[in-house]
Design a protein around this nucleic acid. Structure first.
Lengths: 143, 143
DNA sequence: AGGAAGATGCAACTTTGTTGCAAAATATTT
DNA sequence: AAATATTTTGCAACAAAGTTGCATCTTCCT
């Protein structure tokens, strides 16, 4: 994994620093989306708040991560797939937020369907967020 | 309109107060979504910041308005249709955010297409937000 | 009109996000 | 491997966004 991380950074012409490695580790371990707060909590002892902000900003610019809109005003970030290039994302997948456990995952296998807008509107980006109960919580029923 | 507003409040067992009436007026006049900031600006002289927060919170709880996630992580609020009940929304239409003028409109005529989730996931709500240029801005080209 | 319940405004506070700059770490050159 | 150039980091100070407790004022009901 350490190797993967270094590759990601090198591929994007970024120097290899502690905060970048640590934050990428978190994303790779998570397999889902992370709120800024989560990241800050899990790195707060090692890195300054400001560094976390700046690192995420850099990752966003480079297309390493993308942000996910949520209805409750929190900002989520998730790793991008390989075909995301700098300044040009292809996050054409649906995001799922679990009402129960609060986790957010990228449903890479579910693509956002095309829709037809009324005349005169120009579409640039489409975001689709589904909420409900995730596989784990739905299986655990009772909860 | 004044009558409509009173009805909305009565139907939801809310007392009729200055801030509630004023904020509902804004929504009815807007025919689209409003950011918290917009609302605060347009009522700031009459009402305290805190009152705006609390009023929106009450409206959300009662299902009078709903929040819309946007790609830039600002939160928008819009009036719900009649069939939204407390804690149970049916906002099955697409929202459009204009990159140019910043306005958000509800596209009542564009319904959110059905999608199929992976096995095990339970869908409750779907939000679809399109960004781009609205009719007005796209027509005004140059800008 | 009068009293109970609820809404508002104020002040103080927490949380979240930003900026400039000096110090430290990383990369590069020789 | 050392010296230099380039980035990155942490700090401090700040700005913006959102929350809470409490006293005061409104609204509602009889």
């Amino acid at each position: 994994m350490q190797e993967t991380i270094q590759n990601i950074l090198k591929k994007n012409l970024l120097s290899i620093t502690g905060s970048r490695v640590k934050i990428l580790e978190l994303f790779l371990a998570q397999n889902g989306a992370l709120a800024h707060g989560d990241i800050e909590k899990r790195t707060g002892e090692k890195f300054d708040r400001v560094t976390v902000y700046r690192t995420l900003q850099v990752f966003l610019n480079k297309g390493i991560i993308h942000s996910i809109p949520t209805a409750d005003n929190s900002v989520l970030y998730a790793l991008c797939k390989d075909d995301c290039a700098e300044g040009h994302h292809h996050d054409n997948h649906v995001h799922f937020v679990c009402d129960n456990c609060g986790n957010t995952v990228c449903m890479d296998e579910v693509t956002v369907p095309l829709i037809k807008l009324p005349n005169g509107y120009e579409m640039r980006q489409v975001e689709m967020v589904v909420s409900g109960r995730c596989k784990v919580c739905a299986a655990g029923k009772g909860v």
